[in-house]
């Protein structure tokens, strides 16, 4: 017996299984990052002084642009699946992965600079929360890149056999990727600008 509603939507809910699953997962992610933002607020309220302007705003702005761009390429990859243009899909998904990698490389330079001049997590609570938040976010980017690479490479075989199901998978991967972008949109001002 096959599991129903893997490909098509259940009429009452209007969604297929994986879409319900990913949104619930993202809901839990909201609570995860929510707890860390709460931590940030409590630490900042409790701190006599809070460092300002010690992070590289220029690099972070570039990184914000990189992630936003990767979000639009992701959504374009999905749209290409809908228009049944597999070549374009691969191009856009490949770009998304590369942009993710770019983000990580820039992040690496930022991190190594901080470590070089002694801004390590144990320096003060600001660097502690900075490294925890961006580190966890970085892991999420990495996770998304792995998933996307799978769909770009071996996972794309499904396009031939079950194109609708494959499109669903790209949609779900996209939802996750946009969420990672969304988290960064809040991280950027909180850590770099305020």
């Amino acid at each position: 017996m096959e599991i129903p509603y893997v490909v098509t939507a259940r009429p009452e809910t209007g969604i297929f299984n994986a879409k319900a699953g990913i949104w619930l997962f993202l809901a839990s992610e909201v609570m995860l990052f929510g707890a860390l933002f709460t931590t940030y607020i409590l630490l900042r309220i409790g701190a006599p002084t809070w460092p300002h302007g010690e992070l590289d705003v220029a690099l972070a702005t570039v990184n914000t642009a990189v992630l936003i761009t990767s979000s639009i390429t992701m959504v374009m990859a999905w749209a290409s699946c809908l228009t049944k243009d597999f070549k374009k899909f691969r191009l856009y998904l490949g770009l998304t992965i590369l942009l993710g990698a770019t983000f990580m490389v820039i992040k690496y330079f930022e991190y190594s600079h901080h470590f070089h001049i002694g801004d390590i997590p144990s320096k003060n609570t600001f660097y502690a929360i900075y490294f925890t938040l961006t580190g966890l976010h970085g892991l999420h980017v990495l996770g998304g890149m792995i998933v996307n690479s799978y769909f770009w490479g071996p996972g794309s075989k499904m396009w031939k056999s079950e194109p609708v199901r494959f499109t669903n998978r790209i949609e779900v991967a996209g939802l996750y990727w946009h969420f990672v972008d969304l988290v960064w949109i809040f991280l950027f001002p909180t850590l770099y600008l305020l």
Binding site: L24, A27, S28, E29, M31, L32, F33, G34, A35, L36, T39, L43, I120, P121, S122, T125, A128, I129, F131, T132, L136
Partner: peptide, 25 residues
């Protein structure tokens, strides 16, 4: 389970940072 556990995961990460990276959360 879905909505209450993630804050503990965050809390566990912070305690790990305190123990392993020497932070003071």
């Amino acid at each position: 389970l879905l909505l209450a556990f993630p804050p503990l995961e965050a809390a566990a990460v912070l305690q790990l940072m305190d123990r392993l990276a020497g932070t003071s959360f």
